[in-house]
């Protein structure tokens, strides 16, 4: 029997697999070649790429034909759309090898940082890296989703510092909420985060591997809350309602505007309480 769990594989995890030779390719046939096809239920069995850039091989192919199986669609869609360019991590699943489920490509136009990472990695420049996303969130595992859904906006003025011995390496979180620290060698690094707009975070350790790179998302907390009541025009308390906080600032490219909803409930006696509010830097 074949089975898989639905978790995405990061670029760092792909780079740690020397047998996987990524490439950037444009879909020239196969895949999703009609607007009538739903990537979640694609009948496609193969995708033909015109290879534009190859990594980790001395014998690049001009064309790469990749078999895609219904199994991939079980855990994720298969959105190799005709005419679009992807960073592809082709894999071969042998008997006994760990199976990696799901769509493994990255749309180039939406993955500039990951494309740059792969290029640098194979050019052996700044080989050791620690990267991740930072946002106000209740847990680090929700950071990516919070940024994607617009429930948290990329924090401004946040520095992430990696320390090993007497040496420190710093990165500023960018306007997408991402950071990347280039370090000179593999090993354990002590990570600290500094920002006047968020509550202090206890330093923690991250191991940067010899192959691939380390990913660590960071959840910040403001400790801010807004609390109040909903009342109808006659002054009567309302027990149900939705309060939406919106930011008038334009959202960064590729991100939804910051928006956070709080729901008044009977159990709270019509009080609406919300937290994780962004600070004004």
């Amino acid at each position: 029997m074949f089975g898989c769990s639905c978790s995405s594989v990061s670029v760092c995890q792909w780079l740690a697999r020397p047998s996987v030779k990524p490439f950037i390719g444009e879909v020239i046939s196969g895949g999703i070649d009609s607007v009538q096809l739903d990537p979640w239920y694609s009948p496609a069995t193969q995708v033909r790429f015109k290879v534009l850039e190859s990594f980790g091989t001395d014998q690049p192919r001009p064309v790469f034909v990749m078999r895609v199986s219904p199994t991939a669609g079980m855990c994720s869609p298969m959105p190799y759309i005709l005419g679009r360019r992807y960073l592809v991590f082709p894999r071969t699943v042998h008997e006994g090898e760990e199976s990696l489920c799901g769509f493994t490509g990255r749309l180039v136009e939406e993955s500039a940082a990951e494309v740059a990472l792969v290029r640098d990695y194979y050019a052996s420049r700044n080989r050791y890296r620690l990267r991740g996303r930072v946002a106000a969130s209740s847990h680090e595992s929700y950071v990516e989703l919070s940024l994607l859904m617009g429930e948290s906006r990329p924090p401004k003025g946040v520095r992430v510092v990696a320390t090993q011995g007497e040496s420190s390496y710093t990165a500023l979180v960018d306007d997408r909420g991402e950071y990347e620290i280039k370090v000179p060698s593999a090993g354990d690094y002590r990570i600290s985060v500094s920002s006047p707009a968020y509550l202090p975070l206890e330093p923690f350790s991250v191991a940067v591997p010899a192959a691939g790179c380390a990913i660590r998302d960071i959840a910040l907390s403001t400790g801010n809350t807004i609390e109040g009541q909903l009342r109808d025009p006659d002054g009567k308390l309302l027990s149900v309602g939705t309060v939406t906080l919106r930011d008038a600032d334009p959202a960064p490219p590729g991100r939804r505007p910051f928006e956070l909803r709080a729901y008044a409930s009977k159990s709270e006696g019509s009080r609406s309480r919300t937290s994780l509010l962004e600070n004004t830097p």
């Binding site: 801010n224 109040g228 009342r231 004004t280």
Partner: peptide, 20 residues
């Protein structure tokens, strides 16, 4: 504007009245 100027700030007592 509801101004939040630093971490740990609590804004209380807000009364919000919806439209008709």
């Amino acid at each position: 504007a509801i101004e939040i100027t630093g971490p740990g700030q609590q804004v209380k007592g807000l009364v919000i009245v919806p439209g008709p």
